[in-house]
Computed example of a mutant assay.
Amino acid sequence: MDETADLYDFDDEKDENKFDFKKIVSENWIEPPKRERKRNYSESEYFKQTLRQSGPARPKEPRIPRMPQLHDFHFFNTQRLSELYEKEVRYLMAHQKNQVKDTIEVDEPEDGGDPLTAEEQEEKERLLEEGFSTWSRRDFNTFIRACEKYGRNDIQSIASEMEEKSEEEVERYAQVFKERYKELNGLLLHFKHDTNFYYDIPDYDRIIKNIERGEARISRKDEIMKAIGKNLDRYKNPWLELKIQYGQNKGKLYNEECDRFMICMVHKLGYGNWDELKAAFRTSPLFRFDWFVKSRTTQELARRCDTLIRLVERENQEYDERERQARKEKKLAKNMTPSKRAAARHAAASPPNTLKKRRQLLMDDYGGKKMTSGVFGNER
């Protein structure tokens, strides 16, 4: 053995003329045939193949169009669409029956009318495009709730509530809804007024009442914010200088500082944000040790705010009445003559005691004259 040879260096692998049995077998292998299984005789398969080969291919019959499902909130022109679909279906049904009768050799074909003209076909496609077929019942309910929350005119806020609809599509639907909402007659509500009487209220009436109720809440909220703003504008620093005319409704639980802070925070945060108002009380250093205010719930804070808002509105009414009276007096004084104006100023400037004395003097003079005339009359 050679000492310089490698341990893994075999001589048989280096033999290029060695006979490779596996290679020869793989190249000359013949695949045996597959076993053929007997199939059972089938008459249906036989006749199917026979008829397919012998009979000519029949032309496909025109497919009868299916009437799409038209919901009331889709706002389709259902009457016209139904007329067009009925005409088209009537013609196609008659056409199919006539084809069957031709194979049976019947001499009286059925008259199904004329097919849709090109203008009617275009009208049908246009009517289908005018509706809102992509709107589901869920989209419609979301739209109604958004109208109750933001009002029918706030399209941008309504579109923000609807995830899959663009603002342009929502605006177009809102316009159609405003014009054709009385077509929503899908649901009827039954209210039992008496044992024998029921009243049917259309669906649109219920929807519109809910929307109007929501819009009334929005309008009331705007009035409250305007009233608070008008009251605060009369003060340079309302956080410190605001004075509330309590009258008989001051109460013993809330102090004036707390009420002042509450009104100013409602003007800042907006009416109805009671959770934010409660958080403002809890974080304000003014009420760090006022555990009564910090422990109030949102409902209690809301009730107190409503009471203060009524006081503010009453104060605004009194202020407006005083201004109206002052303008009226100024207008009357402007139209008076100089002599009457001087007399009015003198009467307004004279104290009440002087007026009483003047009245007393006039009465005394009148009484003295009367007595004198009576005495002279008796002497005569």
Rank of each mutant, 00 (worst) to 15 (best):
173 Y>H: 10
152 R>E: 02
161 E>G: 03
122 E>N: 14
92 L>R: 15
101 K>D: 08
122 E>Y: 00
161 E>H: 06
83 E>L: 08
135 W>A: 05
119 E>R: 13
159 A>F: 01
121 Q>D: 03
102 D>S: 14
166 S>Q: 06
96 Q>T: 03
115 P>Y: 09
107 D>W: 05
87 K>S: 09
98 N>V: 10
153 N>V: 05
166 S>I: 04
125 E>Q: 15
129 E>I: 07
132 F>M: 06
92 L>W: 09
142 T>P: 00
134 T>K: 14
135 W>N: 05
168 E>H: 07
81 L>Y: 12
133 S>C: 02
155 I>Q: 01
162 M>G: 05
104 I>R: 13
157 S>V: 03
140 F>L: 02
100 V>M: 12
90 R>Q: 12
107 D>I: 09
110 E>C: 05
123 E>I: 03
158 I>G: 01
104 I>P: 03
148 E>I: 04
126 R>E: 10
118 A>E: 13
167 E>C: 05
168 E>L: 03
148 E>D: 00
148 E>W: 00
157 S>G: 03
86 E>M: 11
148 E>A: 06
126 R>C: 00
141 N>L: 09
86 E>N: 15
149 K>R: 13
96 Q>R: 12
154 D>L: 05
128 L>V: 04
82 S>H: 12
162 M>P: 03
82 S>G: 13
89 V>P: 05
155 I>R: 01
148 E>F: 00
88 E>Q: 15
126 R>V: 00
160 S>K: 12
103 T>A: 10
88 E>C: 08
170 V>N: 04
96 Q>Y: 03
114 D>V: 13
107 D>K: 13
150 Y>W: 10
122 E>D: 12
105 E>M: 11
93 M>P: 02
140 F>N: 06
88 E>N: 14
139 D>E: 07
81 L>W: 11
83 E>D: 11
91 Y>L: 05
85 Y>E: 08
124 K>I: 01
150 Y>F: 11
82 S>N: 15
84 L>P: 11
156 Q>H: 05
81 L>P: 10
119 E>V: 08
114 D>R: 15
161 E>P: 02
129 E>V: 07
172 R>L: 08
103 T>S: 11
160 S>V: 02
132 F>E: 08
122 E>P: 02
127 L>V: 07
113 G>I: 10
82 S>F: 04
134 T>E: 12
172 R>S: 11
